[in-house]
Simulated assay, not measured.
Amino acid sequence: MIVTLTSFALPAPITREQARDIFLATAPTYRGVPGLLRKHYLLSEDGRTAGGVYFWTSRAAAEALYTDAWRAFVRGKYGTPPSVTYFDSPVVVDNVAQETLAGG
């Protein structure tokens, strides 16, 4: 599994409630994206940084999302360019499903 961390500095701090409204408005964009298993939206405690943690089936699936068009969308929505960091996740502990998964 691939995990990506995206982040971007906001031009002005936002509240949790503002972030929730913004994130709910963009959430449908990510429904049904091939290879995307889950996305967690993030907001720093001071409201100055936002982003997301994405869980992917493969790096190719992740790279298919993070195009120039996606970067332009984020920049247009939040006023700042995003950074994207890729991580390999060889082991996952899932306490909801009560299992540990190991990738090949």
Rank of each mutant, 00 (worst) to 15 (best):
T4L: 01
L5F: 13
T6V: 12
T6M: 02
S7E: 06
S7C: 01
F8Y: 13
A9G: 05
L10K: 08
P11T: 06
P13K: 14
P13V: 15
T15C: 11
T15S: 15
R16L: 15
R16G: 08
R16V: 13
E17V: 09
E17C: 09
Q18V: 07
A19V: 06
A19R: 12
R20E: 15
D21Q: 14
D21S: 12
F23A: 12
L24G: 04
A25P: 03
A27D: 11
T29R: 15
Y30K: 02
Y30T: 08
R31V: 09
R31L: 14
R31T: 10
V33I: 08
V33M: 05
P34K: 03
G35D: 01
L36G: 07
L36Q: 02
L37E: 00
L37T: 00
R38M: 10
K39R: 13
H40S: 11
L42H: 08
L42Y: 04
L43A: 09
L43Y: 07
L43E: 04
S44Y: 04
E45S: 10
G47N: 02
G47M: 10
R48C: 14
T49N: 10
G51W: 01
G51A: 09
G52I: 04
V53G: 05
V53Q: 08
Y54W: 14
F55P: 00
W56L: 00
W56Q: 00
T57Y: 03
T57Q: 15
S58Y: 01
S58P: 01
R59W: 01
A60E: 09
A60I: 01
A61P: 01
E63N: 04
E63D: 13
E63F: 00
L65Y: 02
Y66C: 08
T67M: 05
T67D: 09
T67G: 05
W70L: 02
W70V: 07
R71Y: 01
A72K: 14
R75G: 05
R75W: 02
G76H: 08
G76C: 06
G79S: 14
G79R: 08
P81L: 09
S83F: 04
Y86T: 03
D88G: 11
D88F: 04
P90L: 14
V91K: 01
V92P: 00
V93A: 14
D94G: 12
V96W: 13
V96Q: 11
Q98E: 15
E99M: 12
E99C: 12
E99R: 10
E99Q: 15
T100W: 00
T100A: 05
